[in-house]
Design a protein around this nucleic acid. Structure first.
Lengths: 193, 193
DNA sequence: CCTACCGATCGGTAGG
DNA sequence: CCTACCGATCGGTAGG
């Protein structure tokens, strides 16, 4: 009875690749079955539905992001340090599964209700926690007083969330170094000062 | 004979909204027909195929981005000024049609060959032109010497390209101001210096 | 712009 | 995990 569990995970992992490559709606269960070398109908002995796979991928990633930020918020460091570490940890979580991260970001809108609503709440909550860090940095005088926090935080997440689409750890820098450089760019900018 | 042209544009505009909201693959021609108050079959007297609409949207936007960058490159200003103006103009082009911009960014992958290949070439070309501006800024000493130009330019485009998904000009700052702030954040960072 | 319709493909089930 | 199959929906065409 070890097989069913790991086989289910294998199905989900292959589905993640397929959803990333073709998009959720354009990826068929027959495509997925072919990747696994089985018949389409056989998939349903491992999973309940196509959307169950998407739900698993999206909510598992959400839980990981949340947990990483929990740890960062507890740290007794300055706001700019907190932001830097938060960015680095977010990158680390994505780097652990770039495929699932891409699905999380691009395909969550295909969740049906009430899951979609729940997902969006988790996401806005996560974003707001980062926004509070930026606001703290403005109050303490670490960040510029005039910055638009909503714009800043959305720009931050845009940069972070697209990373899984172009980053490949093989022929590039390591995730830790990527996170460090990304944080440096967003906090300190490109310009010499 | 004025009707056919504007009606076709109307079909494309409605399709853009639908593709943005549901994604290209999940948006059906019957959905589109319903939005226009006609039968699905009637769409084909205005357009040749579903993909023709996507092609029009993607390549029209690409042409606008290209034209805006052409103008910026001709300017006799410093690299950091060129980057700032390039960002502001990119935002302006997007703001002119946020819906088409969102489709351009999120749905282009559903183009079939050889259009997909052509589109990706246009896009990599555009990105490389921005990369050269950043490299110029490093040579002239305006930007930090150690920055990873590929990472920088991808971060830049991530920030820019997600904008159509969260920005709405009604209850927020104007496009020009958004472009200015976005450029400032990416070039100068959040930190006070 | 409509009615009528087509072949292909979809997610999923029954029963083994 | 398979064979056999279902109802629904897809993009698109013929002919008016």
């Amino acid at each position: 009875m070890i097989t069913p569990i790991s086989r289910k995970k294998q199905v989900i992992r292959m589905a993640a690749e397929l959803f990333k490559d073709k998009g959720y709606a354009a990826a068929s269960m027959r495509d997925l079955a072919q990747k696994l070398g089985i018949e389409a109908a056989s998939l349903y002995s491992h999973i309940k539905s196509k959307e169950e796979i998407l739900r698993t991928l999206c909510f598992d990633m959400a839980a990981e992001f949340r947990a990483s930020l929990d740890a960062v918020e507890k740290m007794k460091v300055s706001a700019s340090e907190k932001l830097r570490i938060g960015i680095e940890e977010h990158v680390k979580v994505m780097a652990r599964d770039l495929t699932a991260s891409a699905v999380f970001m691009n395909e969550h809108r295909h969740l049906s209700q009430p899951y979609l609503r729940e997902f969006l709440l988790l996401r806005i909550n996560y974003i707001n926690r980062f926004k509070k860090i930026i606001e703290e940095g403005i109050r303490t005088g670490e960040f510029k007083p005039h910055i638009d926090t909503k714009l800043s935080v959305m720009t931050l997440f845009s940069s972070l969330n697209w990373m899984p689409l172009w980053y490949s750890p093989e022929n590039s820098i390591k995730p830790e170094e990527l996170g460090r450089q990304l944080a440096d760019m967003l906090i300190n900018g490109l310009k010499k000062n």
